[in-house]
Structures are given as structure tokens and as C-alpha cells.
Amino acid sequence: MATTAAPAGGARSGAGPEWGGFEENIQGGGSAVIDMENMDDTSGSSFEDMGELHQRLREEEVDADAAAAEEEDGDFLGMKGFKGQLSRQVADQMWQAGKRQASRAFSLYANIDILRPYFDVEPAQVRSRLLESMIPIKMVNFPQKIAGELYGPLMLVFTLVAILLHGMKTSDTIIREGTLMGTAIGTCFGYWLGVSSFIYFLAYLCNAQITMLQMLALLGYGLFGHCIVLFITYNIHLHALFYLFWLLVGGLSTLRMVAVLVSRTVGPTQRLLLCGTLAALHMLFLLYLHFAYHKVVEGILDTLEGPDIPPMQRVPRDIPAALPAARLSAAVLNATAKAVAVTLQSH
């Protein structure tokens, strides 16, 4: 707590007008949050009220503090005034710089407070939402609820990063000019944020009733299916199993998202455009993640243990020849899959 106290203390002893501007900023952010949340019927508005109350109380306290500090400050400068203008200016500059830094540090903590309502969940809620993400709903006549919450999606994305890292390591993926870690994080967060904002943009064009927060939550929970499928198929190398899971588990989670989007969109063309794009992106992403970091090891295994090559022949000559060939074909496949995914994501 010692670290939080220091910047806060610095900001408190700051003068009035600066603080007022800062305060308005925070309030503005708060009201924006409430606006976003108002569309959502499951938001915890009581939490925000508490936050605002807390903020106001703190404001009063700070005003009192600031008045006391200014008095002391005046005495201090008055005494120094005998020694000339220079020291006063230097002190003033240092004071300004310190205040700016302190308010910046404090705004970081204030931002955490702004984000906090999105993490206001219970374990049971997260569990039920994870299960619900695999159960498509039938009723599309009235808008379905989407909980605006970010804990579940964020944790699912981190889980996906870990699973992807595991897949990359077991398949001996080599990435030039980059680390596996960075690639995994970039892929997962890029997909989550990129596709969410793209679909949100499409939803705006198609006049669908959805906010960015809800879109992030919807797509984030949709990644639960991906996590299950990838975790199983990175460890059990079986093509038929992957396709079965891809259709069943991936399909169910996609269907859920599509059903929710359909219930919030009006008009068949808009529904088709929005849901077709989302379904295609979501399913192809799973396909890409599986084959991009799995095909390499499969290709090598096929050449080494393929039934049509007699074991006697391949021992001295074929392995050095076959290995680069397999790697090349796998690399080509990998590159094609990546290019397809990139074009799909960017469109």
C-alpha cells in the first residue's frame, strides 16, 4: 500500500483547478461507462453508484487538504521571497512537474477503478456462462441477454495463449524474427480484439443491437470451444477426431454466438451478412490454429512412419532427403493457411 499512498498524497496536496479538471475527466469516463451499461440489463449499476459516491467523498477530503497545503505553501514561498525570484521559479517548476507525474500515476489507479465493474462476477456465474457458451438458444424472436463482463473472456484468451504455446512447442514450430510467446499472444489477442471490433463495425452497419463490450464478451466466451478442441487435439494426433470436434464443439459455440446475434438483428440480409462473417471467421480460426501448429509434426511423422516406405530403404538415404521435403511442404501449407487467415481477418 506504500506505493499507492505516495502518488495519491502528491496529488492531494496539489492546487484546486488542476484537480478539478482531473476530476471532471474521471466523471466523464464514469458516465460513459454507465451509458454503455444502460443498454445491458444485467449490469451492476449499484457498483457504479458506490464508485461515484466514493469519488465525491474523496473530492471533498482533497479540497480540505489542498486548502491547508496552499497556506503552508504561501508561507514557505513568502520566506523564500527574500532570496530572489529565481528560487521561486525553480520551486514552482519542480512543483508543477511533480504534480503532473503524481496525477498521471494516480490516473492509472483511477483507470483500474473504471475497469472494475467489468470484473464483478462470481465463480458460479462464470461457470454457467462457460456452459451456456456451448448451448445454442432457439428463441430468436426477442433480444437475448449478453452479460457485459470481461473476466471470463480474458482468462479464456490467456488459456488459449498457453494452449497455443504448448502446440507450438510440441510441433517444433520455428518462427523467424519473433518469439513463440509473442506470436501466441499476438494471435490470440489479435483475433479477439480484431474480430470483435470488425463484427462490431459490421453490426453497426447492419443496425444490430450490440455494444462493443457485449461483442467482446460474446466472442471471448466463444473461445471456450476453441480451447477445448485445441487442448485435446494437440495431444491426440488424430485427424478424424479433430474434424469431429471441429464440427461438434466448434460448431456449437459458433452456433451459440450466431443465435445471439440473430436475435439482436432485424432483417434477413443483415442477419446473413453478420452471422455468415462471424461463423466463417470463427470456424476458420480454429482450423488455422490447429493446422498451423500441428501439421509440421504430422508431416514429419507421416514421412518417417509412412506404411508405403520400406524400413530398410529409408534408413541411409531417405531421411535426409525426405525431411526437408516434408518440412517444405508443411511450410508451404502453413504459409498458405496463414495468408488465408490474414486475408480473412483483415476483410
Binding site: T4, I112, L115, R116, F119, D120, Y151
Partner: peptide
């Protein structure tokens, strides 16, 4: 994450 969940522990 623990701060966002409302934990009272410093960074």
C-alpha cells in the same frame, strides 16, 4: 486481475 476482482493487496 486480482486488483480488478477487488483484492486489497498492493501491486
Amino acid at each position: 486481475n486480482s486488483k480488478l476482482l477487488g483484492g486489497n493487496i498492493s501491486f
